[in-house]
């Protein structure tokens, strides 16, 4: 009926851009226009990124020397040594705790826990990841500084940082194990492997790269946090010699020195140098994470396809 009305093979149908008008024409013009419009959002977002890196570098690099890394801040002078040391120790404690708790919990959630328990654990993990860092900070301050009578200690800072990092390690471990193709398990068990052997010899090696990326990711987040440690690790300009002392750390340097009067401008420079160093470390970790996941992805690609 409708087709017959015009008859195929007679005049050319209106298929060209030029042949349409009104509503259809507006639709086509809009479709041409919007791919140029939407990516403008990238300018809005990436401009701050570059501006930030540029300014931080500009304020930090001219005075950045080896001494910045090796000297301890004294008065208005010196370098970041004690803060770098403190950050390293804090992140080491944090990573140890987060890896221990996170991987163990992730392992059990993925492999052993009954379904409702696993679901509940995952929900709790996700909520824990959403707890504001400052709430963790208050928690740490009340429990590990006041209640224990430790006062400000590196250990307390490390523990709170560990709790902050835990959910990321936990969820990636769980995810990595649950996304191992089920055929692998069936094949292993069919060949007579015990569940434990399957986990250690097969599932874990497959999951390891994802777990590692999770750990590095958690480290990057932990490195940049100030809120959980400012009121647990306290502050001390001298390099630490033990875990039960307060310590300084890179993010703390920024928090303490950002708002000083101009007369104390050298400390502001130190804050920018700390910021510069943090950006470098975080970018480095990001690159590692990318390389790791690219490399392992290629190696494991066959498995996931």
């Amino acid at each position: 009926m409708t087709a017959g009305a015009e008859g195929l093979g007679e005049e050319a149908p209106a298929l060209t851009y030029a042949s349409v008008s009104g509503r259809t024409r507006r639709r086509l013009i809009f479709d041409r226009f919007i791919p140029w419009l939407l990516p403008l959002a990238f300018v809005v977002v990436l401009f701050p990124l570059f501006d930030m890196i540029f300014w931080v570098a500009q304020k930090a690099v001219p005075t950045f020397t080896l001494a910045t890394l090796t000297e301890t801040q004294v008065g208005f002078g010196g370098g970041l040594y004690s803060m770098i040391l403190g950050t390293l120790v804090l992140i080491a404690i944090g990573t140890a705790i987060a890896t221990g708790i996170g991987m163990a919990a992730g392992f059990y959630t993925a492999e052993y826990a009954p379904r409702p328990v696993a679901t509940f654990g995952r929900l709790a993990g996700n909520i824990l990841a959403g707890v504001p860092a400052i709430v963790l900070g208050y928690f740490g301050y009340y429990l590990l500084v006041l209640y224990t009578n430790w006062g400000f200690t590196t250990l307390a800072g490390g523990i709170v940082l560990g709790i902050f990092m835990t959910p990321y390690v936990y969820r990636t471990t769980d995810l990595a194990l649950t996304s191992v193709p089920p055929t692998q398990r069936e094949a292993a068990l069919a060949m007579g492997a015990r569940p434990r052997q399957y986990l250690l010899r097969i599932a874990f090696p497959i999951a390891l790269p994802t777990v590692l990326t999770g750990i590095f990711f958690a480290m990057a987040l932990g490195l940049g946090e100030a809120a959980p440690i400012v009121y647990t690790a306290g502050w001390s300009s001298t390099p630490i010699t033990g875990l039960m002392q307060p310590t300084s750390f890179l993010t703390g340097a920024i928090w303490l020195f950002y708002d000083l009067p101009p007369s104390e401008g050298t400390l502001l420079t130190l804050a920018f140098q700390a910021a510069f160093l943090l950006i470098l470390i975080v970018l480095g970790l990001n690159v590692i994470v990318q390389l790791l996941s690219d490399r392992f992805r290629r190696r494991l690609q066959g498995l996931f396809e």
């Binding site: 195929l8 050319a12 060209t16």
Partner: peptide, 12 residues
């Protein structure tokens, strides 16, 4: 399609 090249660049 009815004498019109659908892969022509002027076709939407």
């Amino acid at each position: 399609y009815r004498g019109q090249e659908i892969y022509s660049p002027s076709v939407a």
